[in-house]
Design a protein around this nucleic acid. Structure first.
Lengths: 234, 234
DNA sequence: TGGCGTCCGTAAGCCGCCTTACACATATTA
DNA sequence: TAATATGTGTAAGGCGGCTTACGGACGCCA
């Protein structure tokens, strides 16, 4: 269930705080954003937008975690990336995309802030640095997807798993006594979606890595113990 | 062998003619581009840039045809797209990419025009419409790659082949007595690279389609006879 | 405390596609 | 026209990973 937050003060505060793009915006532009942005809260597991929805808004993640994924007709899923607080997503709204191609789902209780495409474009028209920053963001998404593509075509499940674990360590790692813990509750199924495979195959591959001492795991938790050997598998 | 063309008149003429971005540039900006752009000619089968090359230039295709592809270590290849005259490519230079990730090869005798990253960025700083047009281009590349990814993960070789043939018909189709001819000399091997498969498997699949009457083929030539049934295969 | 839902381990069977292998056809060059 | 390179047809064999199947572990809630 969506919770539309009330109270202008809190809302305005939330939306502009904690947004990676503040460094390319003037105080005046920030004030303009404050007026147009609205925040929405979601519980874990809810959907921010579905494939096919009109693509006319951008989002910034205030706090929580959002997963961007493809869905094919039969419900199979490929997770593209997991958005962290401060990041912008839904940016394809300004590339001319008419309808969403991905699904955006919350993994935790989450607050996102909405910017309407038109408002953002107005800003970008007058602020080339903002436009270029968007360009960079698109470039990063492109690289992410390219990597997935490369892996799917040229590598097997083991290599894909290794690479994904390394990325997770880098993006969400928290150091631990005997290694680095991935700071996200991840089921084997979610991992499978990240590498474009099935739950069973992923469980198997993980078990193999554990037997070789590269990692340790419990329900939803993975601690990587040997980053170097993991790199060799890619 | 590269042929650096000489003669300012011809060179300037070539570079600004026939460029999809002219509609967002003022005459003054065009004049500035004329001064900075240089053209280079290639014979069929040469390489414009390799993976790992520094990523500091953009290109417009004046005439000819350029193929953008991944290469993995062992030389396997996945063709992303084939660039037509007028299109811009190498645009990842301005997303912060340091080194080329793809290879750009000519399929025919070709002339490209080079714009240095810095020159382009200077233009984009002062011309938000240009910056937004780049954003759109990146969005299109993103969609292309997403489609490849989706197909690779969720569809088999037959569906990928069908979809690719349809795209080729749309982008390079020339109508013929009994169907639409794909206006490109394409070996089965090149087709295989487009769908992320092998030459043998692709030959087999093509033969199957021919037997079913969906297309006709000779060495390097494909005439699609039944677009509708092809669509059903995707 | 018991029951139910979610998550995980494991294995047999199957299937699509890659690999390897070779013969033949068609273009290209000498 | 011969000789060589390039492109195409086809088939057997193998393998990675998906599918299907089931039993057990853990967490949550009544």
């Amino acid at each position: 269930m969506k919770l539309h937050l009330q109270g202008d003060v809190a809302r305005r505060f939330w939306c502009v705080e904690n947004f990676n793009f503040v460094d390319v915006l003037t105080p005046k532009e920030l004030e303009e954003l404050r007026r147009t942005m609205r925040s929405v809260a979601y519980r874990a597991g809810e959907t921010v937008y579905f494939p096919g929805d009109p693509s006319d808004t951008l989002y910034t993640l205030h706090h929580g975690r959002v997963r961007l994924a493809y869905l094919d007709e039969s419900g199979r899923r490929l997770t593209l990336t997991i958005i962290n607080p401060g990041e912008l997503f839904g940016e394809t709204a300004i590339t001319g995309e008419q309808r969403r191609r991905w699904i955006a789902e919350t993994l935790e209780d989450t607050v996102v802030c909405i910017i309407h495409k038109g408002d953002f474009l107005r800003l970008a028209q007058n602020n080339p640095r903002l436009a270029l920053k968007i360009t960079k963001l698109l470039g990063e998404r492109l690289v992410e997807i390219e990597n997935k593509l490369e892996d799917l075509l040229f590598k097997g499940v083991n290599a894909r798993l290794a690479r994904t674990l390394l990325q997770l360590v880098q993006k969400h790692g928290e150091s631990e006594a005997d290694g680095v813990r991935i700071g996200l509750k991840l089921t084997h199924e979610e991992l499978a979606h990240l590498i474009g495979s099935t739950r069973e195959t992923t469980s198997l591959a993980l078990g193999e890595l554990e037997r070789q001492g590269l990692l340790r795991k419990q329900r939803g938790i993975i601690i990587v113990r040997d980053v170097e050997r993991l790199k060799q598998l890619t």
